[in-house]
Design a protein around this nucleic acid. Structure first.
Lengths: 252, 252
DNA sequence: CGATTCATTGATCGAGATCAAAATTGGTGG
DNA sequence: CCACCAATTTTGATCTCGATCAATGAATCG
């Protein structure tokens, strides 16, 4: 639960209380295989999901097969708050890697929202942050060049992963294909490949088997017009753990 | 308050209760001139806004002047739920027409959320719907052609306006420039103009001084792959008003 | 009315798409 | 460990949708 705990720590001063609360909702823990659907279009979910480990994508497919990935879901992410509305999903959520999810009953979740301030606050923040990510995605595909889009997305993913998992280096483990990136960025896989090669030749990144290293963060940020602030995430500094590690480990 | 009342009626069975509640929060009513900012980047808002009349846009500007409109705000829309988080706005909201807004204090709003089920439910729905619109915007700019984008946006705006204001015809009053449309759709004004001319020559729409008429809704929907369902809005049928009109009129 | 903003039209350009083939990677089973 | 197959990535050649640049035509408004 480290990732989720880290996320919650960003939002409230008593992350333990929030995690304990989740714990008491007796969530079901499930293993998900790559390409397995978690939420399917048209279905009505009666539970929320917390991504414990692994990556997932939320996307919509057009009749003729075109696909748009709306956003990437990383460890610690909560979805779909929409479930609480009892509406049919207008999109699909699929695991891209082997994942581990927690399923929380929506009704029980609402009760927890009502009874715990920190709990409500944490999820409000999560929702606000998710919306912010969606808005940024609109700007990215609407007004940025291919180079900017890719650079910007790499920086966002790196940032989010760092905050969730607390890595300290400039390596970004990217378990997605060029096609996935293309579908997220409104480009073709071919052009994604070419553009990433260009970024590499410009010594901005280095790519090797599923890992992208950010070689020159400053120049890359400038190229992408990347603004660290928009994610509303503080950088996690793991050298000063906010709580007794033992306590963290047993949460959920 | 008709527009907001209509919107709320979509979400809950007791719209009057919700509107009364808003009323009791003693919101401040303000007139806004075209191009006047309602929310500015970097500012922390301590109130929510309800758009009573007029159109507004939410957008972000890049350093070099490129602008992306994230979404259009129409009569009856509520924004910014983000205000409740006390974070700086990462975008600007500007009126495009002369508008009338209601400002509600965020703290008082939260109290109302806690104390009234229908109230909370209504705003949860509004938030869910807004997210849905954002996702659709991502698909639109990410994976649709210029023709599809424009057709799709016109249909969405028409639908939303019909639900809020209850028009019955196929006319869409569009108080925005081609530049605004371009900035919303990730295109240039020139191409928007050309494409709309094409739609007209194909007898799909007809444009005249700030009004677009949808001539062939079916064909236009097919061209745009427009799915009526995604907005989660029921069509408002004003021939059977859900409540005594007198009552509606005095609400707020 | 001028003056300014906005929309249209025309000519040309270019970023990214498309089509196709080769190279790399990853798994699977012998 | 290697041979084989499928999926992914890369590279090359060409095309196209939408961008850009520039001029002309409405609308709108003191």
């Amino acid at each position: 639960m480290q990732a989720f705990y880290n996320r919650v720590s960003q939002y409230v001063s008593t992350p333990d209380e929030v995690c304990d609360r989740i714990d008491r909702l007796r969530p079901r823990e499930t293993d998900i295989l790559p390409d397995e659907d978690i939420i399917r279009v048209g279905e009505v979910a009666s539970q929320l999901f917390i991504l414990r480990e692994g990556w997932a994508v939320r996307y919509r497919t057009l009749e003729d097969g075109r696909r748009q990935i709306v956003n990437f879901m990383l460890p610690g992410d909560i979805f779909d708050l929409q479930a609480l509305s009892g509406l049919e999903a207008d999109h699909t959520v699929t695991a891209v890697t082997r994942s581990r999810i927690l399923e929380v009953d929506a009704m029980a979740f609402v009760e927890a929202l009502k009874s715990s301030g920190p709990f409500a606050s944490a999820f409000w923040w999560a929702a606000v942050q998710e919306e912010s990510i969606l808005r940024e995605q609109i700007v990215r595909v609407g007004r940025r060049s291919a180079r900017e889009r890719i650079a910007h997305l790499l920086l966002e993913l790196h940032r989010r992963l760092t905050c969730a998992l607390g890595g300290k280096d400039n390596n970004l483990v990217l378990p997605v294909t060029r096609s996935d990136l293309a579908d997220a960025l409104g480009l073709t896989p071919v052009h994604v490949s070419r553009t990433m090669s260009w970024l590499q030749s410009a010594r901005l990144i280095e790519q090797k088997r599923g890992v992208v290293s950010i070689m020159d963060r400053d120049r890359l940020s400038r190229l992408a017009h990347f603004d660290d602030a928009y994610l509303h995430l503080r950088k996690l500094d793991l050298s000063f753990p906010p709580q007794d590690p033992d306590r963290i480990r047993r949460v959920i």
